[in-house]
């Protein structure tokens, strides 16, 4: 089953700062945007040249309002073309192909209170979270870390919400969270999104302060399956050999070969695409398998994981 796509028209493309640009989309053929929940991301299929970039961006719009979908894009210095293309090549009125929203960073429904820590553009999923929390009346608290010159942009994005819940820490220092994490009432869940080093530091600090894993949530956009050494996947049952290129995922390559492989989240989280490995060594990139399963090398999540060996033989 290949991923369904929709055509979205750009109805606004607004520069927020030299490196940040906000985009608003509406379905090209009218109607409402696909349903999503807070924390969902949209995968845009960008075609700046002869290659397709599949970039994921968190939806910042209130999921309850399906008149449009909004994202913010940071132009990355080492952009392989996706974010630069969005910044310079996409204009109002253009139509972009996109996947349906997927959510690998959902809100914990049982939480009594939500504590969020974001870095830079990592605040984007929390803009959708906050809209939902405000609507539901659930207590929340946001600590946002950003460059001093971008503090104004984030202050403006957060301006609609109660200032008492928002703490913007502008500058190069990441810290001051010990006291915050130590005083959260029972029932609080913790979410972090931003640069990997910041998320790792925040999660490590929380664990050290007695936060169990069940309360900790961090963003991981799927898409982790692209990028790596090319390899040959042998689908034993289908009697096929397929080349998995550096910039494609194993699952996408299997689907391109016409094989209907199981999948659901496409982000290494749900476990649906678990496939048996007959030969070769998987390079695990998922969040689903436990340490024992990883070490066994007998199973792989095809949506994000790849191969360490030149050939990987799968029971597909």
């Amino acid at each position: 089953m290949s991923q369904p796509t929709v055509a979205l028209r750009v109805t606004a493309a607004v520069p927020l700062s030299p490196l940040l640009k906000g985009f608003t989309f509406e379905p090209a053929d009218g109607g409402r945007v696909a349903p999503s929940g807070p924390g969902a991301h949209l995968r845009l299929f960008l075609k700046p040249g002869d290659r397709v970039h599949k970039n994921a961006y968190s939806l910042i719009s209130n999921p309850e309002d399906r008149s449009h979908a909004s994202i913010i894009v940071r132009r990355t210095a080492d952009s392989k073309g996706g974010s630069a293309f969005l910044h310079e090549g996409v204009r109002e009125g253009d139509v972009i192909e996109a996947g349906l929203p997927a959510n690998l960073f959902p809100v914990a429904r049982t939480a009594r209170r939500h504590l969020m820590v974001s870095g830079g553009i990592g605040v984007t999923p929390f803009l959708a979270y906050i809209a939902a929390f405000e609507a539901a009346g659930t207590p929340w608290e946001l600590h946002h870390f950003c460059r001093a010159d971008e503090a104004g942009v984030f202050e403006a994005l957060l301006a609609p919400y109660p200032a008492s819940r928002i703490h913007i820490h502008a500058g190069p220092v990441f810290g001051g969270l010990d006291e915050v994490l130590a005083r959260q009432p029972l029932g609080t869940h913790f979410y972090t999104c931003g640069p990997a080093v910041m998320m790792d530091a925040a999660l490590e600090l929380a664990r050290a302060l007695g936060w169990p894993r069940a309360r900790l949530h961090s963003e991981s956009f799927g898409g982790a399956g692209e990028g790596g050494m090319p390899f040959i996947a042998v689908l034993r049952r289908s009697n096929l050999e397929i080349a998995v290129g550096a910039e494609t995922t194993l699952l996408d390559a299997i689907e391109a070969a016409g094989v209907d492989a199981p999948c659901l989240c496409r982000g290494g989280a749900c476990g649906q695409c678990l496939t048996e490995v007959a030969e070769g060594e998987p390079e695990h990139r998922d969040h689903f398998l436990d340490a024992e399963e990883r070490a066994s090398g007998r199973v792989i999540m095809t949506c994000v994981s790849r191969a360490r060996t030149a050939r990987l033989v799968l029971e597909l």
Partner: peptide, 10 residues
């Protein structure tokens, strides 16, 4: 006690 506790209790 629980009403006054914070995350970290076992």
């Amino acid at each position: 006690r629980l009403a006054r506790e914070s995350v970290g209790l076992r």
